[in-house]
Nucleic acid binder design. Structure first.
Length: 372
DNA sequence: TCTGGGGTCCTAGGACCC
DNA sequence: TCTGGGGTCCTAGGACCC
């Protein structure tokens, strides 16, 4: 008996936010449901987070203004976005996936990769689907591939609720003539640049010399694009939980804020609020950035490094204001955002007092004391 | 269709140093 | 005095994704 073949499975929940809402309000089943903003489609500056398939049938899409969604689907039920509920539902689902005792890499609220050694990956996928629906009441699609890109692409064919497979030897047969922009990771800007190089299809991309791509896209992205054209790289499923690099909040105001003093005050409050949120995790803040958008959609970010990493809300807020004051604002503000960046976690060991840090950490301590 | 919020990673260019 | 070359740190912005 040989070793079973290695597969990557991509699990993607169907219409996740809408499904979570329907699960707790079963009377909504079968109705068009639109989740987004505060759930009031008459208020501007709010967009659709997720539309149920019934709403999608009327042309409602993610990212569309709620007002437009209501125009397209007047009978839809509009619901406010309820993050804590989706966080909790996501945790339920991921827990079911982890119960299979395979590496699980969480991609977001409603997606994960699984690393599976099996001679019958479809059977495994069916077991996953069955377990998820039995234990959470939510349905999902599963894609199977040799790479993450292939698995993710197959999921697109499996939605909603089915299983599909795309392997290395079928890649060009099934995607060779497709536009390069069909590939996960190639957005509109990159697709446009590729077209300017005469690269239109996936096959074109796979045949392009990596040096040519590097010249246009840089030494990392260029060669990576070619790998995408070839069906993806061998990046493994990483079960280690991701450590957040930072945390941010931003808010688009229903009407623009004309008073700079008011805006400044909000920067202060947002910064303090962020640090209060993050402090229990013990991650000290090293940088703070402020984002501003005006009515014309002019959007800029300013950032700065704190004199020293800190958990003190007042210190972070003060620095946020220093950064904010570098804007020369003469117009009303549509959006305000604040982002904090955390220091690198001390690798492999719990947080240590700087005075007693050893080894690699000690080097960091030396370097930081040498800064002017 | 007047355009959300929360992330990640990469690149460019200036400052500064040797 | 016409001007090197490399390295690192830092900030701003681009691009993409869910």
């Amino acid at each position: 008996m040989g070793t079973p073949r290695e597969w990557i499975l991509h699990v993607d929940l169907d219409q996740f936010l809408a499904a979570v809402e329907v699960r707790r309000r079963p009377e909504l089943a079968g109705r068009p449901v639109v989740v987004g903003g505060d759930g009031d489609p008459t208020r501007p500056r709010q967009v659709v987070a997720t539309a149920s398939y019934e709403a999608r049938a009327h042309g409602v899409r993610s990212g569309m203004p709620l007002r437009t969604a209501q125009r397209r689907c007047p009978d839809a039920v509009f619901l406010p976005s309820d993050r804590p509920a989706y966080d909790a539902a996501s945790a339920e689902v991921m827990s079911v996936l982890r119960s299979f005792d395979v590496p699980v890499e969480v991609l977001g609220w409603d997606e994960a990769f699984l690393g599976v050694a099996s001679d019958d990956p479809e059977a495994f996928a069916e077991q996953v689907k069955a377990a998820v629906v039995e234990r959470t009441g939510l349905t999902c699609a599963v894609g199977i591939g040799d790479t993450k890109l292939q698995a993710k692409t197959a999921t697109g064919w499996a939605k909603p609720g089915a299983v599909a497979r795309l392997t290395r030897d079928e890649w060009f047969e099934r995607l060779g003539d497709a536009p390069a922009s069909d590939i996960w990771g190639i957005g509109p800007r990159t697709a446009e640049k590729l077209r300017a190089l005469g690269i239109h299809t996936v096959l074109d991309l796979a045949r392009t010399d990596h040096a040519e791509l590097a010249a246009t896209f840089g030494p990392t992205i260029g060669p990576h694009l070619r790998l995408l054209g070839l069906g993806g790289d061998d990046d493994p499923v990483r079960a280690e939980p991701r450590v957040a690099k930072g945390r941010s909040h931003e808010e688009t105001f229903t009407t623009d804020l004309p008073d700079p003093a008011d805006v400044r005050d909000r920067v202060d409050r947002m910064a303090r609020g962020l640090v209060d949120e993050v402090a229990p995790e013990g991650r000290r803040v090293t940088h703070v950035a402020v984002k501003v958008r005006t009515a014309s959609f002019w959007t800029r970010t300013r950032s700065g490094k704190l004199p020293a990493p800190t958990l003190d809300p007042a210190a972070v807020a003060a620095h946020a204001l220093v950064v904010f004051d570098r804007f020369e604002l003469d117009r009303p503000v549509r959006l305000l955002g604040v982002r904090v960046t955390f220091e690198e976690p001390a690798s492999g060991s719990p947080p240590t007092d700087p005075g007693t840090a050893a080894g690699g950490e000690h080097q960091d301590a030396i370097r930081s004391t040498m800064e002017p």
